[in-house]
Design a protein around this nucleic acid. Structure first.
Lengths: 136, 136
DNA sequence: AGCGCTAGTCTCTTTTTGAGACCAACATTT
DNA sequence: AAATGTTGGTCTCAAAAAGAGACTAGCGCT
């Protein structure tokens, strides 16, 4: 919440005055906090490929609880990254698809995901080294 | 945790077999989960500019608790994104600085942060629209 | 009639986060 | 000399978030 100013100061590279602090209005945090959710990137990655139905997503990510799947999808929908469409079939089915806004976000985001994939070994090495030093 | 397979299936764009599932080894999730922490990006952004001391960071991000500041810094250090150096001054001071690995991560990451800044209004608009429909 | 499928919601338990007290050693202030 | 502040934390307890699993309703299949 109190993020805009923090970010501003960070971006300025200076300790600047903390007055004039609009605590409830920080662009970066406001957006990042949502896509940083535990399941958000995974679902965005899935939906960046093609639309999926609720049950499909659940099977695709079997370790997500229905509760969190519902909630994460709602959050992503609320922020405009995905759309929800209900088909009034016999057992009604619901399809989720990525919006243009979602795609434009996923473009830079996918680069971070790729970085993660490529540098996983370095990170694991760093962890091993750290944990080793912990024992001493 | 159970992420490698999920990601694999997602990346393949196919429902593939869920056997052969090494639940404890998913590159993307393993890395992303850490930098997706509530405070991680903020601290990385700060430290991408210059080294900071513990107290400086605390003042820079006044709404973080000392507990979470310590913990987040430790996590980032463990994954090799930042380094910690203790100076044996009278009240010992501790400096945190970004590593090369950290910088290489921050490069794509900063693009997402920039996206967030630039598209904040679209996201807010989407939220407003969603919330409006909720009332109906 | 009984079962399963659909997309959820509701409740309960466990984990994570936040708020704040406390620490020890030294420096400065009174 | 005694109180106070500064350093970078740790510890405890309360609040918030997440996970597990039961439950729903309408229809199709057997």
């Amino acid at each position: 919440m109190v993020f805009k100013a923090a970010h501003k100061r960070v971006l300025d590279g200076q300790e600047c005055d903390m007055s004039g602090w609009d605590a409830g209005n920080c662009p970066v945090r406001d957006v990042i906090d949502r896509i940083a959710g535990k399941w958000s990137t995974l679902l965005l990655e899935a939906l960046s490929r093609r639309p999926y139905r609720f049950g499909e997503l659940r099977r695709l990510v079997p370790d997500i609880s229905q509760r969190m799947l519902t909630q994460t999808l709602r959050d992503l929908q609320r922020d405009g990254y995905i759309e929800r469409e209900v088909f009034p079939t016999k057992p009604p089915s619901v399809e989720y698809r990525m919006t243009e806004l979602g795609r434009s976000l996923f473009e830079p985001l996918s680069k971070v995901l790729r970085w993660a994939e490529e540098n996983h070994s370095s990170v694991k090495a760093a962890r091993a080294k750290y944990d080793e030093g912990e024992l001493a």
